[in-house]
Structure formats: C-alpha cells, structure tokens
Design a binder for these strands. Structure first.
Lengths: 337, 337
DNA sequence: CTCTGCATTGTGAACCATCACATCGAATCA
DNA sequence: TGATTCGATGTGATGGTTCACAATGCAGAG
C-alpha cells in the first residue's frame, strides 16, 4: 500500500548470492577480463535476477562522474530548442538538469545556480545568446568543468554551436530583393541579443550593398506583442514600404495583425519574411515565408561536442556552425511595381 | 588556460585548517548545538574562506537524499507548463532532471528512463494527461519513490494536480450560449487525452442540457495543422453554425485560418472560443476569447505537493484542483439572430 | 620436482558525509 | 569531597563503488 522502499541490490549482495568476492562481481559488471567463464555466467545470472545496477551516488563519489549535464537557459523562445537537447542527451547516456535564469545573464545568478549543482554535474550547456558573460567569466564560474555555449555570437572564441545568423538574414533579405522590393522595412529583435543584433546588422549591410536605404526599422524583444507595436511604429512613419523583414516568427505574427488592422494585404501590399520557422508559422494568415533552423541538429551537435569535451579535456575549443534555410510560403511575392 | 580541475574542500580540510575534528566542523555546518562559540566562529570563517560545501554525492550516499527531482513529459504543448515547474523546484531547493518521452506513455518507456535515473532522484513529476498508466502502474515503476501526476483525469485517485477542465469547458460553452448562439460547433482535442476528452464531453453535455444538438464536431490532435483540417471538415458538412468551441488555442489558430479562407468573418459570422490562453492568443486575428489556466499555480502546487510527500510519506494521496478562467477578447460576440 | 608465468580471485584502502557512541573536563549538587 | 550532570570535542564504523595490490592455484619450462 504505502511506499515499500525497495532495497537496491549491491555488489556485495550479488557476491554473497553467488559465493564470490565483490571484486569478482565488479569485474563481471564492468566487463573486465580474467574472470573464468563459469563464474562470469553465474554472476551474470544473479545480476539479472536481483536487478543489480551500480549505485549512482557511490559511483559518483569514487569516479567523480555523474552522467548528469546541466542546461542553463536564458532564452525567451527556448522551447523549440529544448526537446532535441534532451533527446540527444539521453542518447549519449546523460540526464539533463534544466535551469532557467532571468535575462540578462549575470555572474551572480549563474554562480548561485552552480552552487547548488556544480558538484553533481559533468558539464554545462548554456543557451545564452547574450554578450554579458564571456569565455573567462564562464570558465571561472564553471571551475574547470567543461561547457558549451549554444547560440552565442558567430565568430566567438567560446566552445559553442551556433546558427549562421548572418547568412541566414542575408538569404531572407536577398529573397526580398530578388523579388524586386526596394523599400524593405525591418522589425529587429533586441539588439543586445546576438541573433537579434546579427540579423539586424545583416539587413542593414545587405540593403546598403544593394544601394537601398536601411532606415525604416524598429526594435522589438521577440515577443508577439512587440511585433505588433513595432509594426505600428513603422506604419506611423507613413513612409512607403513593400516588404518587411521580421527578426523572428513570433513578432511576425504580431506584425501581420497590425498590418491587417491597417488595411494592408499580405503579400499584395507588403511581403513579409520571418525567422525561425516555428511550427505554427505555416498557419499564419498568410502562411509565413521564413528561415528554418534545424534545432534537431543544434541539439545533437551541442551534446556531442560537450560530451566529447568531457571525455577528453584536450578536445579543441571551436565553434560549430549550422546554416538556416529559406522556406518560401505565401507571405512574399514579386513586387508589382 | 586549460581546465584547472579545482579541488573542492572537504570536512577534513576545514578541520585541519582550524585544528579541530571533522565532527566539530560537521556540527557547525549543520547547525548543531554543543559547539563553543569561539570554535564555531573559527570554523565558520574557514568554511567561508575555503568555500566548503558538502559533497553532494557523499551526502546522497549516506542520507539517500539527492535533492533532485525528475520531470517526465509526455505533452505536446508542454512548454508553457515547464518554466513554473523549474522555478518552483529551485525555490524548494531541488534541481530538476527533465525527460521527454513519446506519446503514448508505456510502462516500458518509463521503465527504461527510470533505470538510468531512479537511483539518484528523490521524487517524480509526470506531466501525463493520458489514461495509459494508472496508479498501480506508476507505483510499481517508481518503486516506492514519491510521485505526483500533473494534468491527469479530474477525479483520479492518483496524487495529482489538475485543472478543472469540466467547469472550464462549461464556462466557455456557457459564454457562447449566453451570447445567444444555438448552433455551436466544436473542434475537440484528441479523445484519448484527458483534457481533450473532458472538454469535449463538457461541450456535449452542456449543449444537451440546453436543448442544443451536439453533433457538429471533429477531433484534432491539438496541433495547429489539425485545427485547420478539422475546421475544413466541419465547413464541408455545409451545416449552419454561428459559434465554434476549440479544444485549445493552437488549433484555434488553424481554425481561424480555415474560416478566413472560407470567407467567414470572426466574430460577425462565427464566434470562436479557445482554451489555454497561450501568450500569443491575444494577437490572433481577431484576439482570441479563451480559457486561461494559471500555469504558475500549477507548477507551485505540483512541486509543493511532491516535496511534502518526499518529506513525509504519510501525506495523504489527494487531487489538487485549479480552476480555469474565462478571458473575453474579440473573437466572440452576440449572435445577431 | 622446483620455479616461473599467468589466469583467477580476494583484501584493503579510498572517496566524503553521517551517525552512534566515547571521552574529557568543568560545573553542580548532596 | 565524591558522585552526577552536561557541555564540548573526538573516534569509529557505515554506505557502495573503485583501484592498487596481494594471494591462490595450476600449467608448462627447466
């Protein structure tokens, strides 16, 4: 009825059962040579029968390895990146402790989390697209524990896995230019956010490179609400534009709403491109042209890299780069002019 | 440069530093009486200086407590429930290992996760709105470790925390009836999902109670895509309806799109009510009338209940119920008839 | 028939915090 | 003053796994 408090079998239990020493059992469990075949199979049967599994705490105490990773999240729209990280963590044999911290990241907040967990984790993953903490800060905070940063600055010297926001944004803007648009407005993400800033800068530069004026812009915070408000600000300037590049899909949803309310048709009056390709983007009104990011690959690469650094401290510090991909739907069309 | 592999101070290190026994240090750290004031403060200074913290693995080995919980997720739209759970876990001093499993839940899949983690966690939280595993199954799988189920069936005998979907759905439907609607269609969630089924059943019953015909319905799977398709199915029946109750906001988004494409105006031609009040619901076209669920409270209650069960196995098995709340926006209006 | 070599098995100590118990000295009471 | 109590501190063993090393037994070489 109540909690039976089931007692886990230990090495000694198995040893007593079979009539050998715990060391012999240990050798069988850990696939060491020098155990007689007959002994080995007897031990294996007992292990099976008593459902022996090495006690993680004891293992942790002697080896210093816990097979637990910690994921520290600072992102708003993190939820799309999470499943792949969890999945690949398991795939590599690690459990993942997830911690969410307030934006912006501070050394103090990270320190206070790590005080509680640092002793029981093998490595850290920071989902932290912000410039507030650099490599030295993190190295210091992690006290020698391996870490990998997901979504940091393209070109950063940290051990990291990132999407190439620069070329991603370029693809988005090029798509609009190729369609003949000359007045391309922008709703950027927050400029203290690496992705937001990089996408904004790319918009600015590629417009300039094409002899266009990168001036009609407003900065949001990636929320649907800010997308709505920024679109309002842009419309309030009463300057003509036939295309709008939005820093992420969520803001694009807010922007679509504001444009509709202003009586503008998408894409006939304004072509809109988003960024991320969140699952619902294909169901916006109209379905959104956007930049897809392969979060599955992001999770896999992040875990793989972190685990390899845990296994061997000499794995070089590098940045692994993934590339976004343009997905054309119904929110963009040829400029009728 | 490389990993300095910083050595954590132990009880003995502090003891040697101060010139007392490890036991005395232990007493100071654990706030036990019977330590001379002078000794206590000398020890405290050394603890401070060497940044001593009890080694979690060793603590775990002797006490059997890890201060780690495991959250097992089976939900599609789990992302809105997660932050509050993580937050309140920390608040109560627990780290949380998050694991995502495929729907539907099976004993085998849960067992395989617990094989890896069960030895190092103090309790489990199942986010599992499915009937596949009952109390006995879970008790068996958890082997006496305390657990709490989030989002299970209203009225279930499991230790659980749930929203009252029945009264929530009744509020939504009543709102439509109060507005004078007589033909109320429905897009339900999956019927093997507790929330989906309960909301559907409530729609059915309350329409019947009001002398209305609960026949125009289609079942989706909570995805935006299914919302779009189900709306199409309903429209294809060419039967009149002036209101639509949708099983969650995400499907409502898909449905809005389908209704728009069919040339129907919201709310002039059709009033729409969703469920969940996800953050973007206020930015749909039009802003969605929906049922809000307080996920913050859900997280707090779940953690509080689980932690109390960990502390005292005699805490009674109960179901804690939270109530959704109607949020009226622009997608519903008086039936013009 | 002894000695070396090797496969097989076992012993002891370490990791670090915890808990039960032992010791010591000083203060209290009869 | 001797017995008792109590506060302050220390010792020893425990938990389960891991690792270095010791011990045993048997084979083949000399």
């Amino acid at each position: 009825m109540a909690h039976p408090q089931i007692k886990q079998a230990t090495l000694r239990d198995i040893a007593d059962e079979v009539g050998v020493s715990y060391q012999t059992v240990w050798r069988v469990v850990n696939d060491h040579p020098n155990v007689a075949k007959a002994t080995r199979s007897r031990v294996q049967r007992a292990v099976e029968e008593l459902d022996y599994r090495p006690h993680r705490a004891a293992q942790m105490l002697t080896t210093g390895r816990s097979y637990i990773l910690q994921l520290v999240i600072f992102e708003y729209g993190h939820s799309d990146r999470l499943p792949a990280i969890l999945h690949w963590g398991r795939e590599y044999g690690y459990s993942i402790i997830v911690t969410e911290l307030e934006v912006p990241p501070t050394a103090a907040s990270v320190r206070s989390v790590l005080r509680e967990t640092s002793q029981m984790i093998d490595g850290l993953l920071f989902l932290m697209p912000y410039p507030h903490l650099n490599y030295d800060d993190l190295s210091d905070l992690c006290q020698g524990r391996p870490f990998v940063v997901v979504n940091t600055k393209l070109g950063s010297k940290m051990p990291s896995v990132v999407f190439d926001q620069w070329n991603g944004a370029r693809s988005a803007v090029s798509h609009l230019i190729d369609l003949g648009h000359r007045e391309i407005a922008e709703i950027s993400g927050p400029l203290d956010h690496f992705d937001g800033a990089m996408r904004h800068r790319a918009w600015e530069v590629f417009l300039g490179n094409n002899g266009l004026e990168p001036s009609l812009t407003a900065a949001g915070d990636f929320s649907v609400c800010s997308g709505y408000l920024c679109a309002g600000q842009i419309l309030a300037q009463k300057r003509p534009f036939t295309a709008l590049f939005v820093g992420n899909d969520t803001m694009a949803l807010g922007a679509l709403r504001a444009l509709h309310e202003a009586g503008l048709r998408i894409p006939q009056d304004v072509s809109v491109v988003g960024f991320d390709d969140i699952p619902i983007a294909a169901y916006f009104d109209p379905p959104l042209t956007t930049m897809r990011q392969d979060f599955e690959a992001l999770g896999r690469e992040s875990i793989e890299y972190l685990v390899s650094r845990i296994g061997n401290l000499d794995v070089p510090i590098q940045q692994r780069v993934l590339y976004p991909e343009l997905v054309i739907r119904k929110s963009t069309q040829q400029n009728p002019v």
